[in-house]
Amino acid sequence: MSQSTSAMGNEKIKTSRRKFLKTATVLAGAAIGYSWLKSSQILLFAAEPKDESLPWYGIVIDIQKCIGCGNCAKACKNENDVPAEPFFFRTWIEQYTVKNDGSVNIVSPNGGIDGFKQTVPDEDIFKSFFVPKMCNHCAKSPCVQVCPVGATYVSPEGVALIDEKYCIGCRYCVQACPYGCRFIHPVKKVANKCTLCYHRLKKGLAPACMETCPTGARMYGNLRDKNSDLVKFLKEHTTQVLRPNLNTGSKLFYNALSSEVR
């Protein structure tokens, strides 16, 4: 009885050693293979830019300063040659009005490009505020993840961009963006969205919406630079991103954001 058990024990050790050696060889091979693949990115497109010398852009919108004049939306259309009609916007403004009875009235006539007329009488208003919307330039963009051809991407500066020559206009990204910031360009028939005026940033100029905002409600800056105005603002204020539950890594921070905003 006892002999047979010890024999079985020996057998067990032998097989487990063989198994161990096998697994170790396979794992080592996989590790070496992976490191080789990683070095030749031509086969594995998972390179993450980690260039610390480049800025990593973030945006702040101060809701308390926004007056809903529509200059940002107007300037954006002028700067980026977005057709005035139909009403597609790279940036637009919404007015939220919380009434005394608790209901919320949200308006955005023509994207707020011509300003707002007060639609709710003063005596019914509990509070009211403007929310400018634009691309959140997410670090983990849903729109980038769904693109089937690699035509949309986050640039090394953290700006979500579109490769217009490569986009096939499948609209997958349009429905993937949880903030509704994308549209199909009515003339070019490819996806279009806010580029944070990438062409202006590269020339050292501010994005058109921030250049023309009369109250300075919009700010952009380098999140890597701990002394930038943007980082200082984020330290000094309680800011919030839209839909934090979706874990999009949004880099558009709103100051004084109400919970009514969707």
Partner: peptide, 21 residues
């Protein structure tokens, strides 16, 4: 694939448009 799963030359394309402001 130079920087990631996209055409690196597209960065240059995106910096091309002329400014108006």
């Amino acid at each position: 694939g130079k920087y990631g799963h996209y055409r690196a030359a597209s960065l240059i394309d995106n910096a091309q448009p002329e400014i108006h402001y």
